[in-house]
């Protein structure tokens, strides 16, 4: 009786450990919302980081400059962004970009370092068929790239085979965010 009980307990503990082990791996999200905004910001600014929500308004001239720098159509007049700070200073700025891939929307979070380079990119929503979604490994290719120089050439990051529209949409979004970041200079020190 006791042995049987211990066996059952052991099996449950093993199941628990397996569940935990599975949970600790990166989780492929399902459904249309892959990450909520809160979850994305937690990924953008882990640890003891304060996150401040800010809003900026771009005039016609600024929007034209953004379009020129990004090499694509102008962004909206209203820009909301999130600045992460520690007592040692700002650690980055997170932007959320909404765009269409083919006919359906994608929402990306693009985090820019204080020096104006890409820190990370996360997909929050992808409404097109899942096989067209950019893999995490491809998004990582953008990391540490800036607007001036390497990303100025659209072919710096090779496009995903069979998902040209996705590649174009993500690249345009990243360039647009970097251009907005350049124009806004949200950390106010002109370091980028």
């Amino acid at each position: 009786m006791t042995n049987r009980r211990n066996g059952a307990t052991g099996a449950l503990c093993a199941a628990c450990l397996l569940f935990s082990a599975g949970a600790l791996r990166p989780v492929p999200a399902s459904g249309q919302v892959l990450l909520t905004q809160d979850e994305a910001l937690r990924l953008a600014f882990p640890g003891f980081v304060e996150v401040e929500r800010r809003t900026a308004f771009l005039g016609e001239v600024e929007r034209a400059r953004v379009a020129d720098l990004a090499g694509s159509k102008a962004s909206g007049a209203l820009v909301t962004y999130y600045v992460g700070r520690t007592p040692d200073g700002p650690v980055g700025v997170a932007y959320f970009d909404v765009h269409r891939v083919r006919t359906l929307p994608e929402v990306l979070m693009v985090v820019v370092t204080p020096t104006g380079r890409i820190d990370r990119i996360e997909i929050l929503r992808f409404a097109e068929p899942r096989e067209y979604m950019a893999p995490a490994g491809w998004l990582e290719l953008f990391e540490d790239h800036g607007l001036v120089g390497d990303l100025a050439n659209k072919n710096t990051v090779a496009w995903i085979t069979g998902a040209t529209l996705t590649s174009r949409a993500v690249t345009d979004a990243v360039r647009r965010v970097l251009a907005v970041h350049e124009i806004l200079d949200p950390l106010g020190d002109g370091t980028q």
Partner: peptide
């Protein structure tokens, strides 16, 4: 406006 652009399910889920 941000909620409308990103979607209520994405912003207000929690």
């Amino acid at each position: 406006i941000e909620m409308l652009r990103l979607g209520t399910d994405l912003v207000r889920a929690e």
